[in-house]
Amino acid sequence: MPSNELAAGPPVPVTPTTSAAEDVIHDIGFRHYDGARFGRGWIVRSLLVETVRGIFGLGRPAKSKIMPWVLFGILMLPPLIIALWVILTGGKDLPLSYTGYLSSMQFVISLFVAGAAPYCVSRDLRHGVIPLYLSRPMKRSDYALAKFGGLSIGLFLVLAVPETLLLLGAVLAKLSIGHQLAGWAGGIAISAILALALSSVGLVIAAFTPRRGLGVAAIVTTLLVASGMSFVLSGIAEQKGYLKLSDYVAMLDPFRLVDGLAVAWFGVSSSSSTAPPPGALGGTVFALVAAALVGGGVAILVRRYRKVGVV
């Protein structure tokens, strides 16, 4: 919130600023400022940093910290338990692959996205402060991209930390380092793609729902229903003998989409009963769909912010 800039102070005579290179109204009659002004890049950077911090409740009241950290804690539990289990029993491999972990925690990850995405955009829309952002040397697309980048980074951190914890457990249990490192790298890559895909889905929905509660519900519903639909449709297609169709329907669910990418690129076994995607063609199709999901989401977001805030 830009309210800090409007902090009360002794009335100072208004002097026209001449130093500003861009056509920006800096002095709106409150308090005079002579210091250095950082440009557009710095504003985008600040917005990005504030978004990432806000996702974890940093710089927000204690109440806002509860949910992100509870969900983060739930996400950290399985790696801790698995690591302990492997160390104590002296197993030969992790009972869960690095990418399989993402699918098995699908629901909690969905909830985290649903909590974080409306926080990023809904309040600014609801309180009509977008024009205040835009009165600075920042473009509309900068705002949308900064929010998208912030949510993606936040989400990636949430996924990458448990992955690294899994690796740490594997290393402590003296499993073969090379094999584990390769698996971990794959898990990190898939986490990044999943973070981008979920951010685009979540932000697009949140950007159209100024009410926070409604946005949370809409995002969770979308992700759950997409997942449920893809499983039921897969099952029906399999029952009817359309095995290829059954594998491709998995693309409806972002989690099964990235799971398919993991199968195609890193050769891990699929975490769902079906085995997507079939062959090299399937891998390409899955990759294209993932790219289209992220690209399409960002395009809709930028389009949405071309008009928003103009009353």
Binding site: R126, R211, R212, G213, L214, A217, V220, T221, L224, V225, G228, V232
Partner: peptide, 25 residues
């Protein structure tokens, strides 16, 4: 699917929708 997902989700949408947003804003 209906009893496990649709009914709880719809009740959640409706139940939180009647009073939640008003308390929120």
């Amino acid at each position: 699917f209906a009893m496990g997902t649709v009914v709880p989700l719809m009740c959640l949408l409706v139940g939180t929708g009647v009073i939640g947003p008003e308390i929120d804003d």
